[in-house]
Each structure stands twice: as C-alpha cells, then as structure tokens.
Amino acid sequence: MSSHAATIDHHHDVTTSTGIPNKKLFMWAFLASDCMFFGALISTHLIYRLHPPPGSPVVNKVFSIELTSFSTFILLMSSLLMALAVNAIQKGLVRSTRHHLLGTIFFGLIFLGCQVFEFTHFVEEKHITLSNSIFGSTFYTLTGTHGCHVAIGVLWLILMYIRSFKPADADAGRPWIARAFLHVLVFAVTIVAGMASVLGLIHTLQAHESLGEFAHTHVAVLLVTIAGLAGLSFLGTSKAAVEFSEANAIDVESMGLYWHFVDIVWIVIFTAVYLIEFL
C-alpha cells in the first residue's frame, strides 16, 4: 500500500498484483460473459432467419434502414461523449464530466426513443408481434434485450451524474440523500414525459395534423416535460464543494467500458439483423 501520490496514474494501481484496478478487471471479465450472452441471442436470430416458416414477413420490406442508421449513428456518437467524460474526470474536471455525461444520457435516450418508435411502428403498421411470427419473437427479444442494456446504461449514467453532486462535507449526508432521490425521481418523470411528447409530435407530423392540435392533446406531458427540465437545471446547479473527483475516474471508466461494449454489440446487431437483409 502506498501513500497517495500527488497525481493519480490512471493506468496503474499499485495496490493490485497486476497494476490493473480491480473494478476495471471485473468489468472486462463481465463483458466477456456478456459477449457469450449476446452471442447466444444473435445466433438464435440467425438460425431462425434461415428457417422461416410459411407466411413469415418479408423482412427487408419491414425495416426502415434510414431510421436505424440514424439511431446507430447517434449511439456511436454517444460513445464519443462517454470517452470525453472519462477523459474529463481523469483530469479532475467535474463540470465538464457532468456535461459529457448529460450528453451521453441524451443520446442514449434518443436511441431508446427510436427503438420505442420502431417497435410501435412494427406492431401497429406492419402487424408483427412477439407471438405471430418467429421473426417477431427473435427480433423483439434480441433488440429488446439490447435496449434493456442501453436503458441500464442510461440509468447508470444518471446515477453517476447525480452522485457527482455529493457534497465534500460528510455532515451534509442526510439532506443530500433526500436530494439525490428527488433528483432520480425528476429525471424519471422528465424522461417519460419528454419521450411521450416527442413521440406524440412525430405521430402528429406523420398524420399531417396541425401543431396546434398536438399542443392541445399533449398539454399535460408538455407541461410536465418543461417543469421537469426546469427542475433538472435547478438540481443541476450546486455551488457547494463536491466529493466527486479524479479519484472517481475508475468508476466513470468502468461505466464507459460497459457503454462502449453495448455500442459495439449494436454494431454487430445492426449488421447481422438489419444490413444482412439488404444484401
């Protein structure tokens, strides 16, 4: 055990046998396990793709490759923001880290929103459900499982973002925890209301209805979204000194590893589920 050095070496941890921080090694081993997890699921999809029973949907007529390309691009860009967040915290820049975390969260939510839109569209317009075709079963289970991974990543990012407000003064413990839970709650409400607003707007535009009609029918969710965003910007301003620092870089980095992994899996899914149908 060495005493704290003036600067932290983010690539070497003297307290471990290998110099690799425990959390990082743990995350790498977990991701190896998750590779097998997605491997089994993607294999299932590919096997059933080769054995479509009569009456299966014509898959390349179903996909909207433009939408999926857009959401893929957004997810890849979220990885860039994640990398910038890791870089910022390694330099001890807490404010910059927060901004990049918020950006990553926002991009992750756009991806999830696209997926919600896509699923709704497939069910309502293309009449593909979980149970009426084997394609529906494998497609929704595979992309839905990936979506759950993204959602868990977003939750993790939000919790890390909120954690960055923990005051340096340990005496402020109890009020801080109440505030943290309030923060989580406001995030949840804002995200649900915001997503409902945006999906409603898209629906309005597709149906060629007027924006006034949209504002009229979605007044509640719009107000909640605006109130939520105001709440978030209020909770996101904190003058007090915080505990979050360069020492937390390993926490952000582990989260980043997970996030990049989920993106890489999506590249495989995008290729093996979507692009392959257009060969």
Partner: peptide
Amino acid sequence: HTNFFEVSNGGL
C-alpha cells in the same frame, strides 16, 4: 407466447 420452441410456428 413467443415461438422460440413452438413447433407449430416455426420454432426448433
């Protein structure tokens, strides 16, 4: 009610 192992709907 998915069809992963449901033979009548193409499950294997």
